[in-house]
Design a protein around this nucleic acid. Structure first.
Lengths: 189, 189
DNA sequence: CCTACCGATCGGTAGG
DNA sequence: CCTACCGATCGGTAGG
């Protein structure tokens, strides 16, 4: 891992624990046993560091969802795969995902707009899966867009409490949350 | 409203928009057309301001849930009332609720522990409602504690996107989210 | 509630 | 990658 990647990884951990504004460039540098000024040989600004972290998280979420959609699954399996992918990214990239959800507001207006666009595109994958299920008769809901938001809301909060090595493993969490979501979309089996 | 309350209200709005660390005492003072130093006649420290906001939000959530439990409703109606109360507090106290969810980590360790305790107590109201429904046969879920967390997760995220005066009113949101939750807990009707 | 001010720390640059 | 340093700003206090 080169220095730039090390900086982004370390910053991701610190931003997650303390937040963007409560983490100084000197904090990041100290974690790597460097002086603050040395970071600027590898990055342009503190905001660029935040942007890289947020952007990589967005890419991870979108890449999973695109891969799922490309598989042309039946609605229930498609939603199941979207849920599994979403929880997997959150858990496996906990610092990045946390910073993505928590700190994106501190980006410049242009970059914030890009984040909003990514998020809207991502919600589209979930909305279309719900709509496909409604069309096929697998799901029943009067408002697929709100249902998609409900699902993502329930999943997103995971970053607030999930701890790797805790009593609940990712696989069990995924299975139980998937059951709750599929039930919520009714069309009882 | 006395000066102290004005300070807390203004701080709530600013902390919600910019976050705790990106809001300076001078920012709060400027919103009230005061100098930064004048605030200290009414409050002891910036952290005390955060604490008051977080504490009032926690009180609002807990007061609603206690009132619901005291009514001794049937499980479905009890959960319905808990959901309605939770969404109502979020929407009607958007700044306080947002700061409660987003900034509590910046409190001192002692106060952070108090917040955690409040949150655990609050989750208990939802868990007990789910358990009561399982016992009565109204709900079916293998893990009431996780189901309660799932429900609260879905509801909590509302602070991220809900805007008063938007196309979706609180009443409609409450109704649709309640349907999704009651479906999720299955025991298909 | 104000002016004046404190030491500490911030993001970032110059120059090597 | 370092030392040395910049102007700006931070939370908070003294004294009136």
């Amino acid at each position: 891992m080169d220095r730039r990647s090390e900086i982004l990884t370390t910053a991701g951990h610190l931003f997650r624990e303390r937040g963007y504004h409560a983490t100084s460039m000197r904090d990041i540098a100290a974690s790597l046993e460097l002086r603050g000024s040395s970071l600027y040989a590898h990055i342009d600004s503190k905001e660029e560091v935040l942007w890289e972290i947020v952007n990589r998280a967005a890419d991870a979420f979108l890449a999973h969802a695109e891969a799922v959609e490309a598989r042309a699954l039946a609605p229930r399996e498609r939603l199941r795969a979207l849920i599994a992918g979403h929880l997997q990214v959150i858990v496996q990239e906990l610092p990045r995902a946390t910073v993505f959800f928590h700190e994106w507001k501190f980006l410049s207006p242009e970059r914030r707009a890009q984040v909003t666009e990514c998020r809207d595109r991502y919600e589209g994958f979930f909305r279309r899966a719900v709509e496909a299920g409604v069309a096929s008769g697998d799901f029943a809901t009067e408002d697929p867009k709100l249902a998609a938001l409900f699902i993502l809301s329930a999943l997103n909060w995971t970053y607030q409490w999930f701890r790797e090595g805790g009593e609940l493993a990712l696989e069990a969490l995924t299975e139980r949350y998937t059951s709750l979501v599929l039930n919520a979309l009714g069309g009882c089996p």
